[in-house]
Design a protein around this nucleic acid. Structure first.
Lengths: 200, 200
DNA sequence: GTCTATACGAAGATAGAC
DNA sequence: GTCTATCTTCGTATAGAC
């Protein structure tokens, strides 16, 4: 029954699929949905273009799979500090936002970059981006006091988006080789100002 | 000699060209470089697709023309206040940035939106965007004191970029129907914090 | 000068050979 | 199951008719 030649069929298939997804993420992140062709993805993954279609059905589905959040770990904001301490909660949310800045490059952020790259020109990517940003806005808004918490949360999220776009996607010279802590240090008072809390 | 039938050939040509450019700006702004096809532009301008090519040579040149800054008026920051008054200069630069927020929609900003829409996925648009952002960063940096003026100026510019993207391009619900003065009011302290000046 | 017709290439998707 | 070959569609660009 079992083939002693190792590499069960399912395992081999799984690895090929992963290789295709990696290649797709990389190409989508680099040049966006339109310019990243199935053929180029296949070549990068060293498989036949038809195989990509066989596995994923369509380019659109491949994109969804490549972009979909492996939102597994780290997400939970496990019970903040004392619920009564609004100031601490606000500071924590600022630090959480600043911490999301780096995404270290590569790693699991490749899928996020792919989404961001295409969000302005590909309708489905725009939907994903709105959802992702909306969730982030929700989380931030929870920690903010006041009437216009959601608006402030949205602006804070967009500040980070702008910096990420300029840094990771447009690769502006001004941010090249600037350590993330430096950026975070300059941004921190700016984000605090948006919380509407006493900047202290 | 002159035809009494009015509409000189040159004038007619000029108007047709303008109509094509308007249609192109609108389509590029709405769906980006790749998805805005020559055929669609021609249809929107009510001309033959071949005529578009005849007038502009290629899609790329049409894009350049559609995006190119009609940077004529309003640009000059006619001599700021007392050069010695750094604080006033900083406040002025913040107000200038905030004033660039609205672009009122439509009007002359259509070309700017077209550039922003495609900047992440179309190489030429990225070049234009880097240049435009770089110029803005230069102007802001001039008014800022300190060692890291350019970095701060870049971050301030990217804050505005992020808000513009979220508002005009992604059309986030959270910013829908929010008057520009409200956004400016919330953003002002945030930008001041980035200037490195005493927020006072 | 303006438009019809078409050439040319590329991309996504499919069917059938191995 | 994997790949070759092809089909269809579409977009840019060109050539020739009116």
């Amino acid at each position: 029954m079992g083939e002693e030649t190792a590499l069960p069929r399912a395992e081999r298939r799984r690895r090929t699929e992963a290789r295709i997804l990696d290649a797709a993420r990389s190409l989508f992140a680099d040049m966006g949905y339109e310019r990243a062709t199935i053929r180029a993805v296949a070549k990068a993954a060293e498989v036949d273009p038809a195989l990509v279609m066989q596995y994923f059905g369509s380019k659109q589905e491949l994109f969804q799979r490549a972009v979909e959040v492996t939102s597994a770990p780290g997400g939970g904001q496990a019970g903040g500090p004392d619920p009564g301490d609004a100031q601490a909660a606000v500071e924590e949310v600022v630090e959480r936002l600043l911490g999301s800045l780096p995404m270290k490059l590569g790693e699991l952020s490749q899928s996020r970059l792919a989404m961001l790259r295409s969000m302005l020109t590909h309708p489905e990517a725009a939907v994903s981006a709105r959802r992702a940003l909306g969730e982030q806005i929700d989380r931030v808004a929870e920690a903010l006091p006041g009437e216009d918490a959601r608006l402030r949360a949205a602006l804070m999220t967009l500040v980070l988006l702008g910096v990420t776009v300029g840094h990771q996607l447009l690769e502006l010279d001004e941010l090249r080789d600037v350590p993330e802590e430096e950026i975070a240090r300059l941004l921190r008072p700016s984000l605090r100002a948006l919380t509407g809390q006493d900047p202290r």
